[in-house]
Amino acid sequence: MSKVKTVLSWFFVILLVMTSAWVFLNRNRRAEPGKNYIYSTEEFQQVDPALIHYVEVEPLVPSFGNPSSLAIAPVGQIYVGGPNCVEVFPDGEKIQVPATPTCLAVDDDGILFAGFQDYILVFSKERKSMLCLSPSKKAYLTSIAVDEKWIYAADAGNRRVWRYNKEGGNPIEIGAKDEVKGVRGFYVPSPFFDLDIAVDGSVWVVNPGYHALENYSSEGRLISSWEKAGFNIDGFSGCCNPAHFALMPDGSFVTAEKGLPRVKIHNPDGSLRCVVAGPDQFDADVTGLDVAADLQGKIYVLDPGRGKIRIFEKKKK
């Protein structure tokens, strides 16, 4: 009996020693990195709930993955661009295009302008390709806007805005550095360079490196600008924001940022009006949120991470 006890005792001692050795050898003996080694934007992720004036409603889901561009027609149809296709909501029409459009615009007559890397294709109402504009081989087109007279295209590759007439002629460059006229030039560190046309016919352009929005006449004269850099909720963070914006019917700006993904509304003077969606409503690594606003004040956000057009409506009082 005592022999069995001795054997069992030795067995448990050996088991204890082996377990201890295993735990010791597999233990992480190195300290985890402290907070000084970790990049954190946590304090800027929080948004005061009182500032959020919008609520999310049912999204639009395109039939293809990886939506890349968004536009709202004056009559209210929503155009979504994706791989070799532009889908129209709520009609369900699908327009075949030769590549993935980087930007879209639609005019009052329903003519579609699809921007690809270095050219613009114009499609008639019958969806026949009727014009091709190519500003430069170095072009990287990121935004198009059209009104009754002009086509404006933002070109991140050349850091210029190109203005054409509706037939594709009479091109002029807007935004070339001219210190005498007070134009500092566009500073576009990454391909996020957006523009939109105001109700008075002038064009607002993001100057992303300066965190600014600049207003130019159709002839390219600088009219006004405002800017606000910073990670706080009233500013634009990182090296090139706002990544996208859209003008609302009252002249205010809906802006979308990258890095710290958030959608906000700024008054026409640049001051913050409210937040549409805070960083916690988007995936942390999402880039390229595009925005559009309709005449009723609904905000449409192209969320490439989730492959949807997310819709936000003003909260009811």
């Binding site: 954190s40 934007t41 304090e43 800027f44 560190p189 990454s190 490196g209 965190h211 850099a229 990670f231 963070s237 990182g238 090296c239 090139c240 890095g259």
Partner: peptide
Amino acid sequence: CGYCDLCGGYLRPD
């Protein structure tokens, strides 16, 4: 590199 003035890799968020 974009040679940015406001470089996210160089400057602290705050």
